[in-house]
Design a protein around this nucleic acid. Structure first.
Lengths: 223, 223
DNA sequence: AGAAGGATTTAGACTCGTCTAAAAACGTCC
DNA sequence: GGACGTTTTTAGACGAGTCTAAATCCTTCT
């Protein structure tokens, strides 16, 4: 049974979860960078989380989430994404703002409120940026994705999700209609820098390399 | 311009505001009791608040809010009560629960969200327990009130607000229909203990002394 | 295999918010 | 006007979370 975690513990747990999804074994340096704290702080928090049996910590060897740690992290993800949905859909706040607000709210919203959001919003399956919302049991669908930047010339795909942490980028996406559900087709690739000419909603649109790496579409990554 | 206050500072500020409304000059002991902390903690927080120019602190003489301190406190009250309204009206959470939840939320809800609540709820004038919500300029209507326990036999009045911090009491009120807006008439007074027989919605209802002291109705307190 | 270089951990300090115990001030009562 | 009891403040400690600087460990390269 998870006694109340401090906001700081929750932030670390979430960062570990995020990075663990990508590769394996998360290091002190990874988390320090991800959270913008010193490596020393990260080490001491790793010890604290290990004491609470939320991670397994090996000196000089990073951490992995335990089942309890993963469950807490997934709960946090659910809170965060439902809060974002609430903020955009019911309060009509702009999608480039809600991530920041949800980062604060996720530490303060009790389960009752989260479950009411879920009901009121009709059990949404993704956050406003397209990221899937875990269900109340912590189940999260696996989705095959690749960055828009990986599409070959002439390929078509549907946007599944976009990187949500950079407000400027999100405003740029909104302007150009790059949002989850939209169909895109790569018309032309600029070989040197990697800029793309993409048809979004039929309209030809220039997409910078950084932006194209932050938009994810359906399909398997090439082996 | 009020830089971000810590949750603890906000709690103290709010407690000072609450007690200042009653009498004058709030003492260390008052706040220690109100917040359930030691007198020593209260002294050191008084110094911190004084340094931020939120209160005027005199050694051994308690504190009074400055204009900035009062403005912050009223902002907090607005956040808290709008959050309560939101929780009952939009999320359908029970009125005995929302005070506790709003106590956490009031430290995390940014102004954008509060103002959206206000709009979405159509600028409510009171919280679910009948307490007035300050407007965005911090204006708060003065209302003449007295406790139900002060009514003479045969008197009639309208419930304006009820004490909101005791969930058990609130469930008791809900059961008996004692809520803001209801008309009540004192049918009989029990002189020794102070129990009342009150007509609520036409139905005769026995009201304990403690409960009667926690329900406030319109009218001037006798001089 | 040893040394260089990078990552991690330890050591020590700081702030915030809390506590208990002791000291100081206040105010009241005779 | 002094003595006593209450209130407030001071002193000192602690935990959480952070930092910087120093020490230590790990890895890799020659």
């Amino acid at each position: 049974m998870p006694r109340e975690l401090s906001p700081a513990m929750e932030d670390y747990l979430l960062a570990i979860y995020r990075l663990e999804s990508d590769d394996r074994r998360v290091t002190t340096g990874d988390i320090a960078q991800e959270l913008g704290v010193s490596a020393a702080s990260t080490t001491s928090m790793f010890k604290r989380l290990a004491q609470e049996r939320l991670v397994v910590y090996r000196e000089y060897g990073g951490v992995t989430l335990t089942e309890a740690g993963r469950a807490s992290a997934i709960g946090l993800v659910r809170r965060h994404r439902l809060a974002e949905r609430f903020l955009t859909d019911l309060l009509a706040l702009p999608w480039d703002d809600v991530h920041r607000i949800a980062d604060r709210l996720e530490h303060a919203l009790p389960p009752e409120v989260i479950e009411r959001f879920d009901g009121l919003l009709n059990h949404p399956r993704t956050c406003p940026h397209g990221h899937p919302i875990p269900d109340a049991q912590g189940e999260l669908p696996e989705r095959a994705m690749r960055p828009l930047s990986a599409l070959a010339e002439g390929e078509e795909a549907v946007i599944l999700q976009v990187e949500e942490r950079d407000p400027e980028l999100l405003r740029y996406f909104a302007e150009r209609g790059l949002r989850p559900g939209r169909r895109v087709a790569v018309l032309d690739r600029e070989p040197l820098e990697g800029a793309l000419l993409v048809a979004v909603n039929g309209r030809p649109t220039l997409v910078s390399p950084r932006a194209a790496a932050s938009v994810f579409v359906n399909g398997e990554v090439e082996a």
